[in-house]
Amino acid sequence: MMRPGFADPVFQAQASFRAVLEAMSRPGRVQLLDLPLTPPAGLDPAMAAVLLTLADADTSLHLPAGAEDAAEWTRFHCGSPSAAVSEADFVLALDAVPVLSTLRQGTDEAPEQAATLICQVALLEEDRGWRLTGPGISGSHHLRVAGLPADFLQQWAAQRQAFPCGVDVILCAGHRIAALPRSVRIEEA
């Protein structure tokens, strides 16, 4: 049976958006997204909330193969047309994370057309691991993430060279989210 989306679409979407906005404007700070949401197996509540908040019929979405329950739920509630990894506005990553450069990068004149990668990870903590600097950060923030490809930092450094083009990443783990806007610099702490 299809599981429900937001019980209160207006206020829960607003609360989720403010958490995402806070995460995006303060990269590395972990936000708690504690909504009573019961998404299908394979989809964390935070990820489900981000999808319900941002994706709709106006945005294209790439869902990974497999994870049929999650895909069906997302298609039903968001109604987003599906697209290839290289075309989609939002790219969902559940287990395997696609290489950043395979996503839509935007152009120098229209960097806002770049894709947003919404990524489900195993662990998200404000702890030693990465050291983040850049807009939104006073001094530096620390973030520990488990579940990203081993060469993620190399991919990120490569994409930083092309700024303002590049992919923005929203990381979700359980009820927690953090974001990596393309403007942020990341290094091992």
Partner: peptide, 19 residues
């Protein structure tokens, strides 16, 4: 309406990521 809010919210997020 909620559709308009989502559109504005997506624009705001992209604006924040490219200051």
């Amino acid at each position: 309406d909620e559709g308009t809010k989502r559109m504005v919210r997506r624009a705001v997020l992209k604006a924040v990521s490219v200051p």
